[in-house]
Design a protein around this nucleic acid. Structure first.
Lengths: 162, 162
DNA sequence: AGTTTGTGCTTGCAGTATGCAAGCGGTCGC
DNA sequence: GCGACCGCTTGCATACTGCAAGCACAAACT
């Protein structure tokens, strides 16, 4: 959706940038699923995103500074997508969205596990996760703790318990 | 947008319900602007929402349990819209959205004031605000503190300083 | 070197959503 | 009774979504 600047309210301006069905889903998959190529994002999409929508969103998110794309040294066609500081700072928003969704929609148990941990962990956990994302995506220093691994382990444990 | 249940992820399910350009704007206006009728929402919309979109969203949000509508005793045509517990619990999400928007978009100063206060106040302030919204919309007991009034006063002060 | 498979999109088309502005039927105020 | 108000609804053009086939290029295989 084009950014029309219909008002200067920060909520409105955020929605003009991210208030569509798919942008936050793409960011979620890069962030939590560590899917960094077009092919990964398309093939592993839980929601079955269409190829034209994915291509369009990657282009838009890159143009608006929420993703960056660099060439994959091992394959001339592939791009590796990375989060930026701006998209990393969406962690608290996504955490709250997951928390609300756990309570007010009918999520699956396995896919809710990350949301539950993020809600329980609160801002300290979000900050630790953001530090780790800065390492993974922006070449910052590696933190000692891997929130990413904790979230993934909890997800796999929930899968195994099924 | 129809709720298609493309995956059981709580983020996805939330976006299926609220991931459009306008639903959260309508909820924001009911919540922060205390606009409770169709005419108020339409006439006072900062973003200039179209009448058919407003009518559609009010109908949908009512159908999905995020708003309720009751007849206005003083006017047979008017409906009074109220938040539900589910929409009141969107306060943390909207607060995080406002916080992100303050940092990463170009908001106006005046319209950012509420977002700034909510970010500073954190969860204690959000909880106080939610209690007050329960009073205003759900007939719960009136809290001693009016976050609503504090937010409004700060907004008017910023307007006057302009 | 030629062929096959993989890659990242692009395209065609139908259905749905948005946005502008006029219009409609009912209610209220004078 | 008339005019203004009210809450939508409608007509129409444009934009978005979704499905599935297709395209140009790169890599792997023979």
């Amino acid at each position: 959706m084009p950014q029309t600047g219909r008002s200067g309210c920060p909520i409105n301006l955020t929605l003009e940038q991210l208030g569509d069905r798919w942008s936050l889903i793409v960011i979620r998959d890069v962030m939590f699923g560590n899917r960094r190529t077009y092919g990964d994002l398309l093939a592993q999409s839980e929601e079955g995103i269409a190829s034209n929508i994915l291509a369009d969103r990657l282009k838009r998110l890159t143009a608006s500074g929420l993703l960056t794309r660099r060439a994959d040294p091992s394959h001339r066609q592939k791009g590796i997508y990375s989060l930026t500081e701006a998209s990393i700072q969406l962690v608290p928003l996504l955490a709250q969205m997951g928390a609300w969704g756990r309570r007010h929609t009918r999520p699956s148990k396995e896919l809710s596990v990350r949301a539950e941990l993020l809600e329980k962990g609160g801002a300290p956990l979000w900050n630790a996760f953001m530090d780790e994302l800065r390492h993974l995506h922006l070449n910052a220093r590696q933190p000692t703790r891997s929130v990413f691994r904790e979230l993934q382990a909890a997800y796999e444990k929930a899968l195994a318990r099924r």
